[in-house]
Nucleic acid binder design. Sequence first.
DNA 1: GCTTATGATAAGCAATGTCTTATGATTATG
DNA 2: CATAATCATAAGACATTGCTTATCATAAGC
Lengths: 105, 105
Amino acid sequence: MSYDYAAMIALADPTRRQVFELVAEQPRSVAELTRCLPVSQPAVSQHLKVLKDARLVHAEPRGASNIYHIDPHGLGEMRAWLDHIWGEALDAFRKEINDSREKER
Amino acid sequence: MSYDYAAMIALADPTRRQVFELVAEQPRSVAELTRCLPVSQPAVSQHLKVLKDARLVHAEPRGASNIYHIDPHGLGEMRAWLDHIWGEALDAFRKEINDSREKER
DNA sequence: GCTTATGATAAGCAATGTCTTATGATTATG
DNA sequence: CATAATCATAAGACATTGCTTATCATAAGC
């Protein structure tokens, strides 16, 4: 189970989450995204770069615009990792319950 | 679907992930955790505070020690949120594929 | 009781991250 | 062809974060 945590780190920032949610809702250009957000256009571009590197979005050049689309890969990897950890955590939790039961006897 | 992202933010830090993994493996005291990690005891305590607030671990005082255990709540909430977003993302992705098919006609 | 071990908190510092303005490159528009 | 629009990148300001050392409170062991 190897995972580079890029998607999780990317989504840990609130502004970046907003950018991602907007793109997930529908494909949008940088200009459109900037109009929806309380930060400057360069800030939006910087966030998009992080999201793109984490494979949460991908860009489609369209004339002078750059349309950003959702990319399922980043979320998929994150989900696989989380499922794995979740399984381990539940096992550990059950084991603890058992151990504490045994002690009571 | 409301989620405060505390678990995700907590696990976005590499040291904090290590602390969490160690606790998930088996319950451990702060001193034990510090011996396993390349940072000072106060650093470990600070990370544990963040993990505890995110309901990823919980503390069990035992004499002068403080044994930290895994707490499934934080991961569970994060998992529920991620499943939700994952569903939305897949819907959006499928919709895009459809839209681009229609344009080709 | 005195010493030792444990762990939480405070204060300060260095590194990192997020934002801004400035700028240049590319494309559409009149 | 000149102007306007779009967007990425660079440079710098500012805030946040993760770490350290110092310290205090509590509990265990002699």
